[in-house]
Design a protein around this nucleic acid. Structure first.
Lengths: 155, 155
DNA sequence: TCCGCTATTGAGAAATAGTCTCAATAAAAA
DNA sequence: TTTTTATTGAGACTATTTCTCAATAGCGGA
């Protein structure tokens, strides 16, 4: 697995490129997220930093994550209404998510045909594609089995 | 264009079917959304109703829209982080959206291959698919031309 | 290395969006 | 018509994210 080194370098280059400052906190955040394996949200990053002795404010992390996203180190896994989550993107191939609406389990799938079609559609309409959201919701195998007493929610 | 009549009937059937009550306000909301052409959000529905002399509270509309969605009269167009929007679904074919990140213009596209692949993926993982989000973001033709002074946003 | 300019940070306030509470009301069942 | 119970309305409340502004710290130049 590629270390965090190259990621940090890339981030630094990204910042310099836009005349943004390479700060202590930004680097710490970058290091923290590059070490994560699964998905994470803002507060998990703050906690991670604190554990490592760095006290960064939530506001700052909120400001840093979009930069890391633009730099390509992480990708936003945009839950639709819940809080924003991210995952490592550096050295990973693009993939989308299949989410179980009952147990919240997330399965990643890689299916290049989607990206090909997306670009095709964008081209048809003259759009320059920059990103997309694509999530499939349903019941995972385990929850399908458990399913049956499908209650109508009230309120 | 199919009138709102059949939509209302379908909604009534949906409500009775789940022992929910067919109320004045729910019907008014249903009529209001079936008349809309483009995309809309909660407050636009409230305003629309008010214009027609019906004073419905936001909470009630917030409660009614998911019902209308489940009944198949409308579809949620899940903006990623902005407020929830909807659009008419009754008598319309499924489609996804291409959104210009600069001017916010939304273009609908219908491309059945996506749904076919989505079901294929779900099947591969044993999921029972219930819904999905799929939006493409980029620059529309007009904004691409205007593009050039690509400012770095601050803060 | 020091200086000065200005971006960044931190902490809390504010904004935004949506949900919840509970008494009053109105459907539906009896 | 009466009874039962879901629904409504208004505002309180929650959750998440953005903003404000004074203090701090990068970075470029001397």
């Amino acid at each position: 697995m590629a270390g965090a080194g190259s990621g940090i370098d890339r981030f630094r280059a990204f910042l310099r490129d836009r005349s943004l400052r390479v700060t202590e906190v930004r680097e710490r955040v970058a290091l923290a997220v590059l070490q994560r394996h699964g998905h994470f949200d803002v507060d998990e990053v703050v906690a991670e930093l604190r554990r490592g002795g760095t006290r960064a404010s939530r506001a700052t992390v909120y400001r840093a994550l979009p930069l890391l996203e633009q730099a390509g180190l992480i990708a936003a896994t945009t839950g639709q209404r819940e809080r924003q989550r991210y995952e490592r993107a550096l050295d990973r191939r693009h993939h989308d998510h299949l989410v179980c609406t009952r147990c919240k389990r997330v399965v990643e799938f890689e299916y290049p045909a989607f990206e090909i079609l997306q670009h095709k559609v964008a081209e048809m309409y003259g759009f320059l594609l920059t990103s997309h959201t694509h999530q499939l919701f349903g019941l995972c195998p385990a929850c399908r089995r458990r399913e049956g007493a499908s209650r109508v929610r009230h309120r």
